[in-house]
Every structure is written in C-alpha cells, then in structure tokens.
Design a protein around this nucleic acid. Structure first.
Length: 267
DNA sequence: TAGGCCATCTGGTCCT
DNA sequence: AGGACCAGATGGCCTA
C-alpha cells in the first residue's frame, strides 16, 4: 500500500489496519481491551454522526422512508469506510513526512552514520540537535570574540564571514544568538561551550567558521542563508589565509569535551 | 519479561 | 467543509 520504507526499514511493517477496518474492525472485539468497549460505543456515535454528515451531503437527511434509509445507511457506511481510509491515509502520510524530516535531521547530526549504527531515536535526535545548535552558536560567539580580541574589532567587522555576514543574514546562528527565543537565550546563558557537548571530529586545525562546520562526514549545513563559507569554497580574505592563532586551540579542547550528555543520548 | 520505541488509528480542535 | 495538527490509546518489535 504504502511504499515508504525509509522510516520503517528497521522493523516489519504493521498489519494494515485499514484492511482490518474494512473487514469489520468496527465490529471488532478481537481483543479484550478495557478501552474497546467505550471506544465501541463512542465509535458507534461517531459512525452515526458521520453517517448523518454523509447523508446530508447526499441530500437524504430527514428521509422518512425506512427501507430507503436502510439502503442509504449501507451506502453511508461505505462512505464512512472511504472517509476513514482517506483520513487515515492522510495521517499516515503526515507522519511519514515527519519521519522523513527527522531522517534529514539525523543526516546532518554529528554522530556516526552507517548501516551498522542504529539510528537515533526521535527524542535523541531532537535533543542532540538542540545541543548541537547551542554548541555551534556558542562556538561562533566565542570565535567572534577571539577574533575581535586578536585582530581588533574594526577589522573583524569587515571580515567576510564571521562577523560581517551576521547582520546581513538574520538566520545565521551568529545572529540568532541575539534574536533567539527567550528560552533558547536563557539556555545559552546557562550553557557555555564547556557545558555544551557535541561531536565535531577533526576540528584540530581550526579556521574560524570553516572547519567548524565542515566536518568530514557532514555536508555543509543547509541554513538557507547562502552563507558562502559553508559552500566548500576557499575564502580569499586575509583572516582565512592566516594560520589559526594559538588561542583558538582552547576552543578546540572545549569542543572535544563532547559529551556526557550526547553520549547518553547515543546509548 | 519489562521497558523503550515506533506506527497506526482515532477523535478533537484549529485553520483556511 | 475539508485538511492539518495534536494527543491519547493500542499493539508490535526489539533489547537489556
């Protein structure tokens, strides 16, 4: 029925409940669930309600002829089945789309990918993503600060990526730190880079804003801002041509402190 | 076997 | 009115 296997690859697909429904699931008492009795009654109510809706759609509501009503009730049950199938199908598609988005998020998360690695659960994905964003944001802030200290504020203000772009690209994390939701803002305030934890392998030789995001296993993050630093292109500016200042190694070590939190997520 | 995770169904609510 | 979104319920699968 549904060909989507990406979100269900690790488990057998469930029995087709629509099929069950069509075979008389609404008469079901195939398991002794305490909820089923109440559901059955409410379901009957629903059936009647929807039946009325369908009947009214067909312009037959209020028909006094009982034999006609019986026929039309039968028709309406078919309509109800079709309606239910339609609604269920929409909901399934919605959840499949949600799972696809979740897979997309997993793909850009800094954790080991591969067939032998069990994929992150949904909750772990969301929590890790949050930590990752927080870490990136605070790293960026820290780098901006360091660059400002080293080269002076006026120069860094003209730097193509780390500072100058932030005003032009509102969605960039370096700008988001000032515009973020109050909750995130408070989270940032309480989460410096040492308490944050995310995995960024191969970050040893740091160039501001470059190698931070260009991890070997992850593609450039699609932030939607057209931020050219992340497009894999070499940057011609003087700052990017210079070797990394020794102060930035402190950032490296803080980044490598990844994570009791994150490791917990991966358990 | 218990608990975690998940897909699905379902009814309610909100939105367009 | 119909669709999107949400939360609760349920059962299946898997793992410690």
């Amino acid at each position: 029925m549904n060909s989507d296997s990406s979100s269900m690859s690790s488990r057998a697909s469930s029995p087709d409940m629509d099929e069950m429904y069509l075979r008389g699931h609404h008469h079901h008492h195939h398991h002794q669930d305490s909820r089923l009795n109440s559901v059955s009654s409410t379901q009957n109510d629903l059936m009647q309600k929807m039946s009325d809706e369908v009947l009214s759609r067909h312009g037959s509501k209020g028909d006094g002829d009982s034999s006609k009503y019986k026929i039309k009730k039968q028709l309406s049950e078919q309509d109800l089945q079709q309606l239910r199938l339609k609604i269920n199908g929409r909901e399934r598609k919605r959840m499949h789309d949600l799972n696809l988005a979740m897979d997309g998020l997993r793909e850009v998360m800094p954790y080991a990918h591969g067939p032998s690695v069990r994929k992150l659960s949904k909750i772990a994905t969301l929590l890790l993503a949050r930590n990752y964003i927080l870490m990136l944001t605070s790293s960026l802030e820290e780098m901006k600060r360091l660059v400002g200290e080293i080269y002076g504020g006026h120069h860094s203000a003209f730097h193509c990526g780390t500072v100058g772009h932030s005003a032009a690209h509102p969605v960039h994390p370096s700008n988001a730190v000032h515009q973020v939701h109050p909750i995130l803002g408070s989270a940032l305030a309480s989460n410096n880079s040492s308490s944050l934890s995310a995995t960024l392998p191969g970050i040893g030789s740091i160039r501001p804003a470059h190698s931070l995001l260009k991890t070997p296993s992850t593609p450039p993050l699609p932030l939607g801002s057209g931020f050219q630093h992340w497009a894999g292109l070499p940057c011609p500016c003087t700052i990017c041509q210079m070797p990394p200042p020794p102060q930035l190694s402190a950032l490296t070590s803080s980044m490598n402190r990844i994570s009791s939190e994150t490791k917990d997520l991966l358990k």
